[in-house]
Nucleic acid binder design. Structure first.
Lengths: 368, 368
DNA sequence: CATCTTCGTGCAAACGAATGCGCTTTTGGT
DNA sequence: ACCAAAAGCGCATTCGTTTGCACGAAGATG
């Protein structure tokens, strides 16, 4: 009798404790798979199988379990899940080391948006790199890989002799790169534009417009994309029997001060260019700005074409003639590729070329 | 006898399988805490304590263990760790729903860079939202919170009656917002600029320059930042005894088509504005573009001032007079705040105001 | 009416690390 | 020399899931 009384009191107390607890910190009320199981009168394993929508569970049970989950507000603990299945349903996104102001380029949020879109559809999460300099970045990649933080990675850039890329192929870790890998091209899956032909076409357009003195301004030469665009430019010149002058090539980060020197040099040549192919809309912005300081007008005195078709390239004056590389699409496809690869481990290396199109606007002038 | 034979063969096979496996996929050779323990001749628990740099372990042992870790290339499994300690050393970054092209704003990569920087220092990882529309975003936040995916969150925007923010305070989940919360201001920690005074000062500058007809162009009115900037503008007008005209106020997403209408309306007024306060550099870009179409020159015919001091605001023509809100710093501080809060659970709600400064450039003209 | 499938579940052992507690040593004080 | 305290370390449990295997109950087959 007494024991019953005790028992009752204890239960009562317990109930109130739980109740109070519940009131205080709702977020701490962790409801686990066991709670759900209890409420649905099944074993935890059954609940787990319901979550996975296993065919081995009857519809009746599934419904009952799902109801219990709803009622309890159950959300699976990812960490436990990931530990058990040794994966993380997350993909790592590696930006170039943020030391470079390249990050200010709207290219990144846009490509991130694309990646995020397909990641979301497939219930993957996004992990983005935070590393400041190259070394930190590398360290972080290692942590992601070895620490089981992500199942795969997307590299948002491609440079020559990139230790991170080397590391990833070495470790046989699934990844895709946006841009063309510098080496082992056939063994790495990547999504890219046909930058070579885009550049060629762009340059041809300038040639068609009567330009014979065309400069090329690109970013650091260790970016593969820069080199591809340069190659396209050279080919176009060659095919038109125009000679290629080293003086017309500028490689620069294009932050203000250094950019100034570049433009200064270009326009103090005995024969300054009447047109330029610039590897990135943001650079064009910088160039146009410099140009103005030197009293050179675009497109009157010099025509400008560039790449990426950023949102703002249409807003500035003059609106840029630029190649639309479909940034968003690059993101979408790279994520799709990666996830495909994660699902079927032995998926072969792929290459996906996103079509480009040239947006003709008014930064170029026909001087025929 | 036969069973022994069998057993041997099986073991042998198994061994070879493991061996092959080892050769094939290096990354699968997961080295755990136990392996390290074995190699260092200690118990796994000791290794764990070495990792945590516990004072209970002698320096000798620590060194030995660390050596073993290096040699084996040990990296802790985050999932296991997180499961055990019930945290994740990750912070969630919530961007506005990516449906809006707002994402193209370089504000985001820049603030991300700031967050990433301090996250990296403190060994936190970054989880970014991928949600497309508001609903998806909400769902994702729930998954992050309930699923133990992140320890805390940073909201990159603040709007009125945001269900996500409500949810987070309701769940008592640690978060900080960049921008001023619409309600419960005193209970939410946030980092912001003094947008009111910045706007006031900016408007005063235009008034000092002799402008009497000043328009305000802002984004959607449900962004708190927009409202703050609008308030500053109104105050300045009032103090200068200028009357506030509804005709001079435009709220718009400022994508091309809609933006056109806005500018059109503004400049077909009997008394068009001679100056404007614009809530964002990107918008200014759009406005300037429209202006040109209408044959209105900036700064000759109309002065423009705006906010954010994006990298590009200095590059465009005319270079924008804009308030530098220190985007990077906003990111850094918000992350610091959050991490502080995570460390000391009962940290009070804070408010951090990042100082602003006005960059005077040539988009404004003195018409006295 | 046995035997054999299928079907629906539950049991228990992983997954890799953290940690309370207890067991040895050492150290220091008297 | 003795005892207490402290230092250094290991055992075993825990975190919340997944999953191979086994088990029991139907239904099908002979």
């Amino acid at each position: 009798m007494e024991s019953i009384l005790n028992s009752v009191t204890t239960d009562d107390l317990l109930y109130r404790m739980i109740f109070d607890y519940y009131i205080e910190d709702e977020e701490c009320m962790v409801v686990t798979i066991k709670d759900v199981a209890k409420r649905a009168n099944v074993a935890p394993s059954t609940v787990s199988r319901v979550i996975a929508d296993s065919s081995r569970i009857s519809l009746d049970t599934k419904k009952r379990v799902r109801k219990a989950m709803k009622e309890l507000g159950y959300y699976p603990n990812v960490n436990a899940r990931n530990l058990a299945v040794r994966s993380s349903q997350a993909i790592g996104v590696i930006m170039p080391s943020s030391a470079e102001t390249a990050l200010q380029n709207p290219f990144f949020p846009e490509v991130l948006r694309g990646i995020g879109s397909t990641a979301h559809e497939t219930e993957y999460s996004l992990y983005v790199s935070t590393g400041g300099n190259d070394e930190q970045l590398f360290e972080e990649v290692k942590r992601m890989v070895y620490g089981n933080r992500v199942d795969g990675m997307i590299l948002l850039y491609s440079r020559v002799a990139d230790p991170i890329m080397d590391f990833l192929v070495e470790a046989n870790f699934p990844f895709v790169v946006i841009g063309k890998p510098y080496e082992q091209e056939s063994r790495i899956t990547y999504v890219d534009n046909d930058n070579y032909h885009a550049s060629l076409e762009l340059t041809n357009h300038l040639i068609d417009y009567g330009h014979r003195h065309i400069a090329f301004i690109g970013g650091t030469t260790d970016l593969v994309v820069t080199m591809d665009r340069l190659r396209g430019y050279r080919s176009a010149l060659k095919k038109a029997n125009l000679d290629f002058k080293d003086d017309y090539i500028v490689h620069d980060e294009f932050l203000r001060s250094s950019g100034r020197k570049a433009v200064e040099r270009l326009f103090s040549l005995k024969k300054p260019p009447t047109a330029m192919v610039i590897a990135d809309d943001m650079m064009s912005l910088g160039v146009i700005n410099m140009l103005e300081e030197f009293g050179v007008d675009c497109p009157e005195d010099v025509s400008i074409t560039s790449f990426n078709n950023l949102y703002l390239s249409e807003l500035i004056r003059p609106a840029l003639t630029t190649v639309d590389i479909q940034i968003y699409m690059l993101g979408v496809q790279s994520a799709k590729c990666l996830i495909e690869k994660l699902k079927h481990k032995e998926e072969p290396a792929k290459r996906i070329i996103i079509p480009y199109s040239i947006k003709f606007r008014n930064s170029t002038k026909n001087i025929n």
